[in-house]
Design a binder for these strands. Structure first.
Length: 116
DNA sequence: CCCTTGATTGTTTCC
DNA sequence: GGAAACAATCAAGGG
């Protein structure tokens, strides 16, 4: 069962990634970024449909419509989307693998980027 | 040991 | 280009 653990999980207020003008507040040197969510794939396929049925819908409308539709879908309909999400998750796993592996490797010469 | 939290992902529209 | 509602997610660290 999906335990929400606690409803304390409040999404961040804004997507503002504080850019530290001085110190680089980076936790991971090269965060392997996470995988996409089923919603991401779902929207990719539905975005056109939503707009097709809601050519007048704007930013908030479509967003809410999409979310409402998403919950309307059955697990079977979400399955294909979850499948894509799972595929992307595997991709993220590889990233982590490389990220962790590289990290472990003490500088193998690679110049690694760094600043950019 | 378990839970919490944070970070991330993609879409839309608009200036 | 970035901003926010929409939802999922999931991995790692902290207590």
């Amino acid at each position: 069962m999906p335990k929400e653990t606690t409803k304390t999980t409040k999404r961040r207020a804004a997507t503002k990634q504080d850019k530290a003008p001085k110190a680089k507040g980076k936790k991971d040197p090269k965060a392997p970024k996470r995988a996409l969510s089923a919603y991401m794939f779902f929207s990719q396929d539905w975005r056109e449909r939503i707009k097709a049925e809601n050519p007048d819908a704007g930013f908030g409308e479509i967003g809410k419509l999409l979310g409402a539709k998403w919950k309307e879908l059955d697990d079977d309909e979400k399955k294909p989307y979850l499948d894509q999400a799972a595929a992307d998750k595997a991709r993220a796993e590889e990233e982590k693998s490389a990220y962790d592996g590289k990290k472990a490797d003490s500088g193998s010469g690679d110049g690694d980027d760094d600043d950019e």
